[in-house]
Protein backbone atom coordinates (compact mmCIF):
# COMPACT_ATOMS: atom_id res chain seq x y z
CA UNK A 1 0.00 0.00 0.00
CA UNK A 2 1.49 3.32 -0.93
CA UNK A 3 1.48 6.33 1.27
CA UNK A 4 -1.27 8.09 -0.64
CA UNK A 5 -3.55 5.13 -0.24
CA UNK A 6 -2.67 4.94 3.39
CA UNK A 7 -3.31 8.61 3.91
CA UNK A 8 -6.66 8.64 2.20
CA UNK A 9 -7.80 5.42 3.77
CA UNK A 10 -7.11 6.95 7.11
CA UNK A 11 -8.76 10.20 6.14
CA UNK A 12 -11.96 8.36 5.39
CA UNK A 13 -11.71 6.56 8.67
CA UNK A 14 -11.03 9.76 10.57
CA UNK A 15 -13.82 11.68 8.92
CA UNK A 16 -16.29 8.99 9.88
CA UNK A 17 -15.09 8.70 13.43
CA UNK A 18 -15.06 12.44 13.99
CA UNK A 19 -18.82 12.50 13.65
CA UNK A 20 -19.06 10.26 16.64
CA UNK A 21 -16.07 11.14 18.70
CA UNK A 22 -15.39 14.80 18.17
CA UNK A 23 -18.68 16.56 17.75
CA UNK A 24 -20.43 15.37 20.87
CA UNK A 25 -18.32 16.51 23.76
CA UNK A 26 -20.05 17.36 27.03
CA UNK A 27 -19.21 21.06 27.32
CA UNK A 28 -21.28 21.83 24.29
CA UNK A 29 -18.42 23.18 22.25
CA UNK A 30 -18.06 21.68 18.85
CA UNK A 31 -14.41 20.68 18.70
CA UNK A 32 -14.49 19.28 15.21
CA UNK A 33 -11.53 21.06 13.68
CA UNK A 34 -10.80 21.56 10.05
CA UNK A 35 -7.26 20.51 10.75
CA UNK A 36 -8.34 16.95 11.51
CA UNK A 37 -9.40 16.30 7.95
CA UNK A 38 -7.37 18.64 5.82
CA UNK A 39 -4.79 16.12 4.72
CA UNK A 40 -1.83 17.89 6.28
CA UNK A 41 -0.19 17.73 9.67
CA UNK A 42 -0.95 20.92 11.60
CA UNK A 43 -2.03 22.17 14.98
CA UNK A 44 -0.96 19.74 17.65
CA UNK A 45 -1.28 16.71 15.38
CA UNK A 46 1.48 14.16 15.66
CA UNK A 47 0.83 12.80 12.15
CA UNK A 48 -1.40 13.78 9.27
CA UNK A 49 -4.89 14.41 10.73
CA UNK A 50 -4.45 12.44 13.92
CA UNK A 51 -2.93 12.67 17.36
CA UNK A 52 -2.49 15.76 19.51
CA UNK A 53 -5.13 17.56 21.53
CA UNK A 54 -7.94 17.75 18.99
CA UNK A 55 -7.88 14.78 16.67
CA UNK A 56 -8.28 11.04 16.89
CA UNK A 57 -5.28 9.21 18.25
CA UNK A 58 -3.06 7.76 15.60
CA UNK A 59 -2.97 4.26 16.98
CA UNK A 60 -5.96 2.04 16.45
CA UNK A 61 -5.64 -0.20 19.47
CA UNK A 62 -9.06 -1.47 20.61
CA UNK A 63 -10.80 -0.53 17.42
CA UNK A 64 -12.99 -3.17 15.82
CA UNK A 65 -10.48 -4.03 13.13
CA UNK A 66 -6.95 -4.04 14.45
CA UNK A 67 -5.71 -4.29 10.86
CA UNK A 68 -7.26 -0.94 10.01
CA UNK A 69 -4.50 1.30 8.67
CA UNK A 70 -3.17 3.92 11.02
CA UNK A 71 -1.56 7.21 10.18
CA UNK A 72 2.17 6.91 10.50
CA UNK A 73 4.33 9.26 12.47
CA UNK A 74 7.15 10.63 10.37
CA UNK A 75 7.53 13.79 12.43
CA UNK A 76 10.61 15.09 14.12
CA UNK A 77 14.09 16.32 13.41
CA UNK A 78 16.75 13.87 12.39
CA UNK A 79 20.44 14.60 12.93
CA UNK A 80 23.32 13.07 11.04
CA UNK A 81 25.30 10.29 12.70
CA UNK A 82 27.13 8.65 9.78
CA UNK A 83 28.29 9.82 6.35
CA UNK A 84 29.84 8.19 3.32
CA UNK A 85 30.58 9.12 -0.27
CA UNK A 86 33.48 7.14 -1.64
CA UNK A 87 34.39 3.80 -0.06
CA UNK A 88 37.16 3.66 2.50
CA UNK A 89 37.81 7.37 2.86
CA UNK A 90 37.13 7.65 6.57
CA UNK A 91 38.71 4.31 7.36
CA UNK A 92 41.92 4.80 5.42
CA UNK A 93 42.60 8.53 5.45
CA UNK A 94 41.50 9.65 8.89
CA UNK A 95 44.22 8.45 11.20
CA UNK A 96 42.71 8.92 14.65
CA UNK A 97 39.42 8.20 16.39
CA UNK A 98 38.56 11.85 16.89
CA UNK A 99 38.87 12.60 13.17
CA UNK A 100 36.87 9.49 12.23
CA UNK A 101 33.98 10.52 14.47
CA UNK A 102 34.17 14.13 13.26
CA UNK A 103 34.06 12.99 9.63
CA UNK A 104 30.77 11.18 10.19
CA UNK A 105 29.01 14.36 11.28
CA UNK A 106 30.59 16.53 8.59
CA UNK A 107 29.29 17.63 5.18
CA UNK A 108 31.10 17.47 1.82
CA UNK A 109 31.20 21.24 1.31
CA UNK A 110 33.32 21.55 4.45
CA UNK A 111 35.40 18.44 3.81
CA UNK A 112 38.42 20.13 2.29
CA UNK A 113 38.65 22.71 5.07
CA UNK A 114 38.23 20.14 7.80
CA UNK A 115 40.05 17.06 6.54
CA UNK A 116 42.40 17.74 3.60
CA UNK A 117 45.46 18.54 5.73
CA UNK A 118 44.95 15.46 7.86
CA UNK A 119 44.46 13.26 4.79
CA UNK A 120 47.69 14.57 3.26
CA UNK A 121 49.63 14.00 6.48
CA UNK A 122 48.23 10.47 6.62
CA UNK A 123 49.24 9.82 2.99
CA UNK A 124 52.75 11.10 3.62
CA UNK A 125 52.97 9.12 6.85
CA UNK A 126 51.96 5.85 5.20
CA UNK A 127 54.74 6.39 2.65
CA UNK A 128 57.21 7.27 5.40
CA UNK A 129 56.49 3.97 7.09
CA UNK A 130 57.84 2.16 4.04
CA UNK A 131 60.74 4.59 3.57
CA UNK A 132 59.19 6.22 0.53
CA UNK A 133 58.05 9.64 -0.61
CA UNK A 134 54.71 10.12 -2.39
CA UNK A 135 54.98 10.56 -6.16
CA UNK A 136 52.30 12.01 -8.40
CA UNK A 137 49.78 9.30 -9.24
CA UNK A 138 48.35 7.97 -12.50
CA UNK A 139 45.99 10.93 -12.68
CA UNK A 140 48.99 13.26 -12.35
CA UNK A 141 47.80 14.46 -8.95
CA UNK A 142 50.24 15.52 -6.27
CA UNK A 143 49.55 14.68 -2.63
CA UNK A 144 47.79 17.97 -1.89
CA UNK A 145 45.55 17.78 -4.95
CA UNK A 146 44.67 14.10 -4.51
CA UNK A 147 43.73 14.59 -0.88
CA UNK A 148 41.73 17.68 -1.82
CA UNK A 149 39.71 15.57 -4.26
CA UNK A 150 39.17 12.86 -1.66
CA UNK A 151 38.37 15.24 1.21
CA UNK A 152 35.18 16.32 -0.57
CA UNK A 153 33.86 12.84 0.08
CA UNK A 154 31.24 12.34 -2.62
CA UNK A 155 30.59 9.64 -5.20
CA UNK A 156 30.40 11.05 -8.72
CA UNK A 157 27.62 9.33 -10.66
CA UNK A 158 27.09 9.72 -14.39
CA UNK A 159 23.60 8.64 -15.41
CA UNK A 160 24.51 8.32 -19.09
CA UNK A 161 27.93 6.67 -19.10
CA UNK A 162 29.01 3.13 -18.26
CA UNK A 163 29.55 2.88 -14.52
CA UNK A 164 33.04 2.34 -13.25
CA UNK A 165 34.96 3.47 -10.23
CA UNK A 166 38.01 3.32 -12.47
CA UNK A 167 38.57 1.48 -15.74
CA UNK A 168 42.00 2.02 -17.27
CA UNK A 169 40.80 1.05 -20.72
CA UNK A 170 43.08 -0.51 -23.34
CA UNK A 171 46.78 0.06 -23.75
CA UNK A 172 46.25 2.13 -26.86
CA UNK A 173 49.59 3.90 -26.63
CA UNK A 174 51.42 0.59 -26.58
CA UNK A 175 53.59 1.37 -23.57
CA UNK A 176 52.83 -2.02 -21.98
CA UNK A 177 51.19 -0.25 -19.08
CA UNK A 178 47.41 -0.07 -19.36
CA UNK A 179 47.23 2.12 -16.27
CA UNK A 180 49.02 5.01 -17.95
CA UNK A 181 46.35 7.38 -19.14
CA UNK A 182 45.97 7.32 -22.90
CA UNK A 183 42.54 8.76 -23.46
CA UNK A 184 40.22 5.76 -23.32
CA UNK A 185 40.07 5.36 -19.59
CA UNK A 186 36.81 5.95 -17.74
CA UNK A 187 36.71 6.82 -14.08
CA UNK A 188 34.48 8.30 -11.41
CA UNK A 189 31.17 7.59 -13.13
CA UNK A 190 29.73 5.74 -10.16
CA UNK A 191 30.39 2.53 -8.30
CA UNK A 192 29.23 -0.88 -9.52
CA UNK A 193 28.94 -3.87 -7.20
CA UNK A 194 31.96 -5.62 -8.70
CA UNK A 195 34.28 -2.62 -8.85
CA UNK A 196 37.54 -3.28 -7.01
CA UNK A 197 37.41 0.00 -5.14
CA UNK A 198 40.18 -0.98 -2.73
CA UNK A 199 42.69 -1.72 -5.49
CA UNK A 200 41.74 1.50 -7.29
CA UNK A 201 42.21 3.46 -4.07
CA UNK A 202 45.56 1.79 -3.38
CA UNK A 203 46.73 2.50 -6.94
CA UNK A 204 45.76 6.15 -6.62
CA UNK A 205 47.47 6.45 -3.22
CA UNK A 206 50.59 4.31 -3.68
CA UNK A 207 50.90 3.52 -7.39
CA UNK A 208 52.87 6.55 -8.52
CA UNK A 209 52.62 7.81 -12.08
CA UNK A 210 52.33 4.33 -13.60
CA UNK A 211 50.03 2.87 -10.98
CA UNK A 212 52.47 0.04 -10.18
CA UNK A 213 55.09 1.76 -8.08
CA UNK A 214 54.81 -0.59 -5.11
CA UNK A 215 53.69 -3.89 -6.57
CA UNK A 216 56.08 -6.40 -5.04
CA UNK A 217 58.82 -5.90 -7.63
CA UNK A 218 62.04 -7.88 -7.48
CA UNK A 219 64.41 -4.98 -8.15
CA UNK A 220 67.66 -6.88 -7.58
CA UNK A 221 66.59 -10.00 -9.46
CA UNK A 222 67.26 -12.35 -6.59
CA UNK A 223 63.94 -14.08 -7.01
CA UNK A 224 62.39 -12.36 -3.97
CA UNK A 225 60.13 -9.34 -3.92
CA UNK A 226 61.89 -6.42 -2.32
CA UNK A 227 59.31 -3.72 -2.81
CA UNK A 228 56.10 -4.10 -0.80
CA UNK A 229 52.75 -4.83 -2.45
CA UNK A 230 50.70 -1.74 -1.73
CA UNK A 231 48.70 -1.36 -4.96
CA UNK A 232 46.44 -4.40 -4.54
CA UNK A 233 45.08 -6.25 -1.54
CA UNK A 234 45.11 -9.44 -3.61
CA UNK A 235 41.45 -10.37 -3.22
CA UNK A 236 38.62 -10.54 -5.75
CA UNK A 237 34.91 -10.35 -5.05
CA UNK A 238 33.50 -13.35 -3.19
CA UNK A 239 29.86 -12.20 -3.07
CA UNK A 240 27.58 -13.10 -5.97
CA UNK A 241 25.66 -10.08 -7.26
CA UNK A 242 23.03 -10.67 -9.94
CA UNK A 243 21.92 -8.84 -13.08
CA UNK A 244 18.37 -8.33 -11.87
CA UNK A 245 16.79 -6.22 -9.17
CA UNK A 246 17.69 -6.04 -6.28
CA UNK A 247 21.14 -7.03 -7.67
CA UNK A 248 22.59 -8.10 -4.31
CA UNK A 249 22.82 -11.81 -3.57
CA UNK A 250 20.55 -13.47 -1.02
CA UNK A 251 21.90 -13.27 2.53
CA UNK A 252 24.21 -16.03 3.72
Amino acid sequence: MNLHTLKYTFLSFCALSLVVACSDDDNGTDIVQASCSDGIMNGTETAVDCGGASCQPCENGGDPDPMEPVALDFTGTYSQVDFMGRPGINTVLNGDDESKDAHNVSIPSEGVANFQAGFEARLVGLHDAYGAVYENNILGLDAATLTTVLAADVLEVSPNLPTTYFNPGEDNDGDDNPLTLDGDEIAFTGRALGDDVIDVSLILLFGGENGIRFSGQDTNADGEADLPRLTSDGVAITATPTDTFPYLGAPE
Binding site: Y78, Q80, F83, P108, V154, E156, V157, S158, N160, A187
Partner: peptide, 23 residues
Protein backbone atom coordinates in the same frame (compact mmCIF):
# COMPACT_ATOMS: atom_id res chain seq x y z
CA UNK B 1 23.00 18.08 -13.45
CA UNK B 2 25.92 20.37 -14.18
CA UNK B 3 28.35 18.46 -11.95
CA UNK B 4 31.84 17.60 -13.19
CA UNK B 5 33.99 14.69 -12.02
CA UNK B 6 37.77 14.80 -11.33
CA UNK B 7 38.54 13.73 -14.90
CA UNK B 8 36.42 16.56 -16.31
CA UNK B 9 33.44 14.38 -17.28
CA UNK B 10 30.36 16.59 -17.31
CA UNK B 11 26.80 15.76 -16.35
CA UNK B 12 27.58 13.86 -13.16
CA UNK B 13 25.68 13.84 -9.90
CA UNK B 14 27.66 14.12 -6.71
CA UNK B 15 26.10 11.80 -4.21
CA UNK B 16 26.66 10.81 -0.61
CA UNK B 17 24.64 8.94 1.95
CA UNK B 18 23.94 9.82 5.55
CA UNK B 19 22.12 8.21 8.43
CA UNK B 20 20.27 10.51 10.78
CA UNK B 21 18.91 9.72 14.20
CA UNK B 22 15.65 11.16 15.51
CA UNK B 23 16.23 13.81 18.15
Amino acid sequence: TTGVNPLGVEGVYKMWVTTNRKQ
